[in-house]
Write a protein that binds this DNA or RNA. Sequence first.
DNA 1: CGATTTTGACCGGCGC
DNA 2: GCGCCGGTCAAAATCG
Length: 591
Amino acid sequence: MATRGGLSFDPDHHSITRLIHHQAKTHFHNNQLKLQQILPRFPAPPPPSPPLMDAPVKSPPTTTIQFPVSHGDHGKRKVLDEMDFFADKNEGGGGGGRDDDEEENVGIEHHRLDFKVNTGLHLLTTANTGSEESGVDDGMSSIPENKRSKIEMAFLQSEMERMNSENARLKEMLDQMTNNYNGLQMHVLTMMHQRSDNQAGGATAEESKNGHDNGLLVPRQFMDLGFGGNEEGSLSPPEGRIGRDMPPAPDKDVVGGDEPCSESKVQKLAHSPRSVDQATEATMRKARVSVRARSEAAMITDGCQWRKYGQKLAKGNPCPRAYYRCTMAAGCPVRKQVQRCADDTSILITTYEGNHNHPLPPAAMAMASTTSSAARMLLSGSMPSADGIMNSNFLARTLLPCSSSMATISASAPFPTITLDLTQSPNPLQFPKPSNQFPLSFLNPSQNMAAAGSSAAAALLPQIFGQALYNQSKFSGLQMSSAQELDQGAHEHLSSPLPPSLHQACQQNQLSETVNALATDPNFTAALAAAISSLIGGGGGPSPNNGCPNPNNNNGNNNNNNNNNGNGNVTSSNNSSNGNNKLNSSGFQVN
DNA sequence: CGATTTTGACCGGCGC
DNA sequence: GCGCCGGTCAAAATCG
């Protein structure tokens, strides 16, 4: 490694760029030698590089070797040259800037290009891109030092650009393959699950009818990812059910939150004409999906719009619990509770209940599909038995194939609850680190990510947590008929400020990396939190709405109306993050 | 001024 | 029956 092709590589510097440079030059030199053997008609390249790099200098007339150089002499010659070598197809397509007098050389050029393409691996061939650079080597001795260094610099730059783009392409491909793999895995698992359900008599025809019990579910134009609109429609008045607008009685009936798993109610419903559906619905509505995510924000981004309707201090947790209901549609019964973990206040626990009865934006759909799938599977597994016995491992794998340890089921009543823990590290095999993956990632991973789309990351910071969840659900493969649809949705969701390439890189690479990084890299998490804080501008950062209150919740915990902490005045300090609440409600802001 | 948040009060289930 | 507790209501306050 120290020496190659007669050039010495200084191991002390460990300069990758030098190495690349050296290898490229070596390859090119070899190719040039072969060229000269095979195409004796063409004289050995006169020191072409200087003209190549220092544009204005006389360029050898029609010397074929120089031909590519003369193509796109518009300043960014490097790139054009590179493109030329790869795109002989494109070349034929009427390459801009080709002179007529050069036409006679076309055949020769193609011949030569073909040869070059066949001389080695694609990667190496591209390394030869600066074929004219060969002249760099050849004429190196006669070139002034500064010119030589210039040439080398330019070459290195072009090399790096090329490698970066290649790196991005490879990443893309790998991500797609990963997605496909996960999707297939999901399909297999869900089919197995379906079969086992059918055997156990548990997988209901209802679910199948509704198309909710397998991973092949069609998105249903974003409609009610939980139980179909039929159920919600049948149960819920079309509108005016939220908050003050809604008549009290129907609300409670519909929400059913007041009767935790009461069998009497289920039985009552079972006797009604809509018995099975209703019973399932009633139980379903009580099923809860809890998402644990490490976040300093007051609320994770799930794409929905929420309105806070209450806050209390729950027993055993000094952090207040906030109650939200979905406000994206008038009658949406979905509610969620947000509370920080008592043990680790950096963990935000979001518990969802119910199913949306309205269209959802893609980002929201991802979360909704994940949670509603979790709830459905939880119920489908738990309903037949009183204890809610089911194979949690299977469920976990089905929900989160990337990390089977991330989903846990709480057997504790009153509500069957499944917890998706996004605070744990996913299986590293699912997302190999870029640095291991791509030989050209001589940047450290964070740099790599930054290179992939740092600006995009900045633009997406408010969504990253949601995107983490989004990707999680994406890889779960639940509810989505194809990864493309999710991708599309994500593209729509992310589309605005990004150029296509960056957009795609961001979508397919960065976000998945982000998920990984979020779970694995504490530094990244910290940086992310800091960035979010700065974005929010509050600076106060980690004193979110539901952040643990100051320890002055004197009266302690167990007052009837816990939210007032006993004297009603303290609450304002508890909720001192008032300003934050506003932002929270958007559902697209991680506040 | 409408939308949202705050917050004290209220309701209902549950355990004793 | 009583108190605890989780959950919700709804008037007042706040925000944009």
